[in-house]
Structure formats: structure tokens, C-alpha cells
Design a protein around this nucleic acid. Structure first.
Lengths: 219, 219
DNA sequence: TAGCAATTTTAAGCAACCTTAAAATAAAAA
DNA sequence: TTTTTATTTTAAGGTTGCTTAAAATTGCTA
């Protein structure tokens, strides 16, 4: 399977998850940074191969087989991320870029060695679930955006959504990491910003937009 | 730089080392498992790019720049091999196949992290030298084939040449590994085979051909 | 429901990397 | 030195994954 196909399937899957809506050609084209025509081409081709359910002018959908392949790649991506971060100490931003390339050139056998080395983990360093060999996805039940936590409640960070280099930078500045326990001190309804108290006692005010990308479980 | 170009440069370098002779198009074509015409094409192209010194009908040679690029890839390959073997416990055969793919998709930064993790090692698990960042190649001075060790002399294995899956299998059966100390008990001039004594006291007779692929230093 | 705007498909073409087969050159033998 | 053989180059063509531009289709809006 080529890198292009890998990425095609993976991104249909992810786009479907993220937007919880229909995956259109133009959406996918934007995400893959290729032309819409290239998406149509590939979709038709993968339709013939039975991994995409392709009908002209209709939204893109993976078949069961396509789903399996997508999860396999996502598994590799997330295991690499965790490995590079935990074992080799790469920062969370590089980790994504490296994994993005390595995922396509890693045998199932190597991946299983890495999984075992890491103790068959359930979540990557961003808090995203790592699909199992059989495609099983660890549950994220109870994980909600920080914006849903009420004043004076405490929560533990489970997931930080990395939209780009800037969010990463912001998380760093505030010292936000998965596993951290926060207390919400005040919610400013004026602009949605939230004051939180960190374990070291420091208090920080996060913008509402940033808080919407921080996910946690109630404590 | 593409995978094809990587492999082209790397294999000119290695072929030149191994045969200590002129690298011909047909040699390289055989090794890369592509047609001779494809080699000519690529050679001309890389000649224009200044990494290969291309003259029609002449042997292929890397420029200084080409050498540098080849060494960079070889560095990545051998660091990956050591890492996969030492850290993740892959066997010496898989290690080569995995490294063969990963080497092309690993940033310099990641490679340096791996090198640091391993303590900036000088040799890969096959005993081949790992070029440094600046292209410096660790010395193999004093490393000679096992066939040059005289009766009753002792030596330490520094390098096992893996020609194919079979040699690998043979090394396993005899328990030969880099670092092991052997004593040559008897050399049979009839067929060049050599009886050696292993650290555990076991004695084994190796064929002359196999012995020629085992390299060691005198003890 | 007719027409317009947005989206998707089709068509034609390009670059990279490969192929086979024919032509050119080099090297070896007679 | 001429001929034969082996090797290398050139030529023509194929596949993959992309591009842009034109045509087709969808679906929204008036």
C-alpha cells in the first residue's frame, strides 16, 4: 500500500471522527493539500479496490475493510508518537511530524515490538486513543472539554488537541500536560475565559478557545 | 531527496567498499534490482546534480558531496539496526529489513536522539562502523578474517558479514556473535575449514567459506 | 421551480521512475 | 587489425499520483 493511499484512508477516518459529519472531496482535498480532482481519482480507484464506498457526488465513506486499514495506520502513528516522546524524549510537536513519516514504513511486527516495549499503552502523548491490533479503540468515556467544568470543580487533563504549532506553544507556556490535575477557579462568561489553578499553586487564565481544546475528566 | 536517489548513492558507496573496484552500471543494476537503463538514466540525472561523477561508459563514482549523502544514509541505517536490535529486541535479520525502509524517513534530529540514546556507538550489531555526523568512520584497524588466525591463537569477533538469510542462520546455529572470544583449535588445510572453541567450551568446525565472513581482532 | 453558485467529475497533461528493445560503444578474441 | 561479444546508452512507452481547466451535477435561493 502506498503512502498516498495510507494517508487517504487515514484522513477520511479522522475527518469523519472530528467533524462527525459527511466527508466531502473538498474537505479531504484541503486536508491532504492536493486538488479536488486528485481526490476524485483516488476515491474511484479505492472504490474499485473495495476500501472506499464511492458513489459519484456522494460523501466519502470507508468500507469495513477501509476502516481496518485506517485504524492500523493510526495505531502505528500513535504508538510512534508515544515511543518517540517517552523513550527518545522528542517534544510533542516533532513527535507528530516524525510519526507522520514513520507510520508508513513500519511493519506490523516492529509495531508490536514497540507496543510491547511500551506496555501496550492505551493513549498517545496527546491523549488520543491507540487502536489495538484487532482495531479496538480504548474508551474515552467521561472525557469532556475543560469548558464544561464548573467553578470550584477539579479535573484531570486527558487530552490536548494540537491544532498547530501555536497551541503547542501555548500549552507549554501554561505548563499544561496530560495527567495534570486542575481546579477551575473562575469562569468569565464575558469572553469564556477560564481561570485555573495548577498543582504547583500557580493560577493561569486560559482563553475560551484554548480551553475548548483541552479535554479532561471530572475529579 | 527521494528513496530511489538515497538507495542509488548508498549502494554505489557500499559496492565500491565491498568490491574495492570500479562500480559498473550492471553491477549496480543487479544490486538494486532495476534495469541497466534505469541506472544510466539516474546516473546522468545525478551527474547534473553534482553528486555523481558521470561520464558515459565509465565506472560510476560519487563526488565528495555524493559521498557525504551516502554516509548520512548509512549512518541512519546502522543506527536503526543497533537500536532495533538492542532496544526493541528484533533479530539481526529483521533489523536489516526494517532499517532499509526507516533510513529514508528519519530526520537528522531524530537520528541524533537515537544516537545519544545509544551512547553514540561506533558499530552496528553486524560489526559495521557507524559513520559520525561529520562523516567520520570509526576505525576497523586490526580487524581481519577468521581465516587469518593461526592454530592455538585466540581472537574476538568484531563483525559478521550477513550475505543472506542462510549465513544468519548459520551464525545462530554455531552461536557466533560480535564480542565473542574464540580460540582456533585446528585449521584443516584440506578444505580450509576451522575448528574453534567457544567461551562455553563447545567446539565447532566452521567451513572455510563461512570463516571468511567472520572478522575478528587478535587477542 | 428556474436559475445561479458551489461542488464534483472528466479530460488532458506533466514529472518521476521504471520497463523493453534497438543502437552505439568498448573490450576481448581471433 | 578485424571480428565477435559484452556492456552501456538511447529511444519509446507504461504507471502512479499529481496538476489545471472545462464540463457536469447538485442543491440552494429567489
Amino acid at each position: 500500500m502506498s503512502v498516498s493511499i495510507d494517508n487517504f484512508l487515514k484522513n477520511i477516518y479522522l475527518l469523519n471522527q472530528e467533524t462527525a459529519g459527511a466527508v466531502t472531496s473538498s474537505n479531504l482535498a484541503g486536508r491532504l493539500e492536493i486538488s479536488v480532482a486528485a481526490v476524485t481519482d483516488m476515491a474511484r480507484k479505492l472504490g474499485k479496490q473495495g476500501v472506499v464506498d464511492y458513489k459519484p457526488y456522494k460523501a466519502l465513506q470507508l468500507t469495513r475493510q477501509g476502516d481496518e486499514q485506517a485504524l492500523k495506520i493510526i495505531r502505528k502513528h500513535r504508538l510512534w508518537e508515544l515511543f518517540l516522546h517517552e523513550v527518545l524524549g522528542l517534544d510533542l510537536l516533532s513527535v507528530h511530524q516524525e510519526a507522520e513519516r514513520l507510520e508508513h514504513h513500519t511493519s506490523d511486527d516492529l509495531m508490536n515490538h514497540i507496543s510491547r516495549f511500551l506496555g501496550h499503552p492505551d493513549f498517545d502523548p496527546h491523549g488520543d486513543p491507540i487502536p489495538g491490533i484487532g482495531g479496538h479503540i480504548p474508551s474515552e468515556k467521561g472525557v469532556i472539554p475543560l469548558t464544561e467544568i464548573l467553578e470550584n470543580q477539579r479535573c484531570m487533563i486527558k487530552k490536548l488537541r494540537y491544532r498547530n504549532a501555536e497551541t503547542s506553544d501555548l500549552y507549554d507556556r501554561y505548563g499544561l500536560k496530560t495527567g495534570l490535575v486542575l481546579k477551575v477557579m473562575k469562569v468569565f462568561s464575558f469572553d469564556g475565559s477560564i481561570e485555573v489553578k495548577l498543582p504547583d499553586g500557580k493560577k493561569e487564565v486560559l482563553s475560551g478557545k484554548l480551553a475548548a481544546n483541552v479535554f479532561c475528566i471530572r475529579k
